[in-house]
Design a protein around this nucleic acid. Structure first.
Lengths: 136, 136
DNA sequence: AAAATCTTTGCAACATTGTTGCAAAATTAA
DNA sequence: TTAATTTTGCAACAATGTTGCAAAGATTTT
């Protein structure tokens, strides 16, 4: 775990600050995508909201994590697996309408919809909603 | 146009208040999905932000419009065409990375991605990004 | 090791999006 | 016309995210 965190940070030339290390651990340990409030509440020491947001921004800029905007302004953050890097043109996530958890569907395959005349697609974000493993 | 607005409101038992009528006109006339600020700025008379949000909420509750959350907390609102009612299990939208316009792709067909063990899908929201008709 | 530099953190303030409570104005019903 | 309901505006608030500035911690330079 520690090694994975260090590797992720090292790859992106991000220094090992306490806040970064702890946040990455939390995100890696969590099977689902988390909102900022939950990440912050899980931190072993107190960090200011600003610091957490700044760290999230660094991670986003370096594509260590990605954000998943939901209906109602809710946003979740999740570690970006190799399969779903920015370079990849397709991302899928699952929103459980029962427990509100969000999961990355990193290995989902998908047939792009046909585009109307004149529209050229570069990437696709799919949000599937339904019931997750735990709620079925 | 006027008739279409009245029909939409009538179907949902929403009274013809000035704000509702004008907002629906704006949304119907626009080929793309609009943020609240733009809807409000296009209104022929001044209405308070609160009133506009309350009207949006009525429309959302009655499925007259739907909201499209984007990366970065941006939200767009668009009239719900019959083809893409809540009852339908699939919605697709197009985000132009050049001019930031959002369009509904109401007639797009699509093959649902396969779900992992235990996950049951009920609906799909697809956000395609690329370049729109005007920007190509 | 001391001084200078760069980075991270916290605090206060602010912007934006959206909501709520309350009272005034406008509609609608009795 | 009076009474009841709905719509609107205003002020205040909540949540999410950003910015400026100064203090604290690391790094580097000499």
């Amino acid at each position: 775990m520690q090694e994975e965190v260090f590797a992720l940070l090292g790859d992106k030339n991000l220094s090992r600050t306490p806040c970064r290390v702890e946040m990455l651990k939390i995100l890696l340990e969590s099977g689902s995508a988390l909102p900022e409030t939950e990440i912050r509440s899980k931190l072993p020491q107190h960090f200011d909201r600003t610091t957490v947001y700044r760290t999230l921004r660094s991670f986003l800029e370096q594509d260590v994590i990605h954000s998943i905007p939901l209906e109602g302004g809710d946003v979740r953050y999740a570690v970006t697996r190799n399969k779903e890097r920015k370079s990849s043109q397709f991302h899928a996530h699952f929103y459980c309408e029962s427990c509100s958890s969000v999961y990355c569907l990193s290995r989902a395959r998908f047939e792009p919809p046909e585009m109307p005349e004149g529209f050229v697609a570069a990437g696709y974000d799919v949000l599937v909603n339904g019931k997750c493993r735990k709620c079925n």
